Simulated assay, not measured.
Amino acid sequence: MQRPPTLTALAVLAALTALTACGAGDDKDTEAPTTPSDVTAQAGSATSVHVMWQQATDNEAVTGYEVFQKGKKVKTLPAGKSMVDINQLSPETAYSFTVRARDAAGNLSKPSPEIAVTTPAPTPDDEKPPTSPVKLRGKLDGNAVELSWGGATDNTGVTSYDIYQEDSRIHSVPGTGTTARVTGLRPGTVYTFTVRARDAAENSSADSNAVDLTTPAAAGEGPSTAPTGLRATARKGNIDLTWTPPKSDEPIESHELYLNGKLATTIVWGALPADGKAAYTLTVSDPPGTRYSIKLRAKLPDGKWGDFSAQRTVVVR
């Protein structure tokens, strides 16, 4: 018959349990993330402000960001975000914002320095958009790009310029600026940038010209496998496409065509395109004025899909 544990045995067990709990506590993450840097706040309209920052780092991982207006939390964002629009503000009013990073253990970074911004006066009758920015240019600098453009004009004044990578706004600068630096680019990737001007009534211009840039491949990786020279011309009911397939020692016989970010069709030739050029006509049925974003990628001889081409945007007639 088994005897019950003695008082001494129970004491030892309690001590071991306490030591185990203490050791588990030693593993708890108590290190806070770094403070988000380069925080900017730009009035996008009379009632909105666009806040941006450079992402923070953490010994484990940053899981999100919190944006504060005068000590009051106004936005919570996931780790992948580094910008946000704060809406429903008052016209002609001074605001200040700070940003803090958060990790999985709940540790918060120190708040960034306060950034002040004043919303402009409302322009309720303004329905005229600015002109498009012109002569957009881009220059790669490692994993970053320096963009510059010619300024737009507006009947009430340009309040900001929005930088787009494909169809996603990734950065904004004040209406007095005509340059931007975009960081965090991936190696061996094709990027397509455009810029739009915006006024205080939230009217946005049409896109500037597009700039395509391909970042250098990472060490040990081969050249880009993206199709190049994509051109898209819209006409009634159709979009005519031409491009150059990626270089390969074996024939490239098919491409996937993406429309507005979704696979639209797979193009397969019975015979290979002559002179290294490819052409295809896409039939569309949406009404005139519909905007399409188009890109494609090739099926490589090893059976894998290659890199995406630069994106082109057209409006059907």
Rank of each mutant, 00 (worst) to 15 (best):
V268L: 10
A43Y: 01
S204Q: 09
L77Q: 00
V67H: 00
V158Q: 05
T178H: 15
T20Q: 10
P216V: 05
V99A: 02
S248G: 06
A101N: 03
T6Q: 03
T40H: 02
F97P: 02
W269S: 12
T159I: 15
E127G: 15
V117G: 06
S90I: 11
D162V: 06
T119W: 02
D162C: 07
S90K: 15
T63S: 14
T214C: 03
T17N: 12
K128D: 14
E146H: 13
L185H: 11
L10G: 04
A21F: 13
W243L: 15
K139S: 03
T228S: 07
G222I: 09
E250D: 08
D103S: 12
A200S: 13
D58T: 11
T30F: 14
S254D: 04
T244N: 13
G261V: 08
R235Y: 05
I86E: 00
A219Q: 10
D38H: 09
P5E: 07
D286H: 11
S205A: 09
K75L: 09
K81I: 11
S285C: 06
G229H: 09
I86Y: 01
E221I: 11
T119P: 10
V315H: 04
T215H: 00
A94K: 12
A101D: 07
R198M: 10
S109C: 10
D240F: 06
S285D: 14
V12Y: 06
P273E: 07
S204V: 09
I267D: 03
Q42N: 14
S224H: 04
S254Y: 04
P273A: 07
A201Y: 14
A61M: 10
G220E: 04
Q42L: 15
N87R: 13
F68N: 04
D275Q: 13
P174I: 13
I294T: 06
D154F: 15
T266Y: 05
D26R: 10
T233C: 00
V195F: 01
T265W: 04
S224A: 09
S37Y: 01
S205Q: 07
S90Y: 11
S96N: 14
K75G: 04
Y161I: 10
S168V: 14
G64Q: 07
I115N: 00
L263H: 15
A200R: 08
P223V: 08
E221Y: 12
G80H: 05
T192G: 07
L263K: 15
D307Q: 05
S90V: 13
I86P: 00
G222T: 03
P33S: 13
F193A: 07
V49T: 07
S204H: 04
G150Q: 10
K304I: 04
P287K: 09
Q2V: 05
R312F: 00
T281R: 12
P251Y: 02
S109L: 08
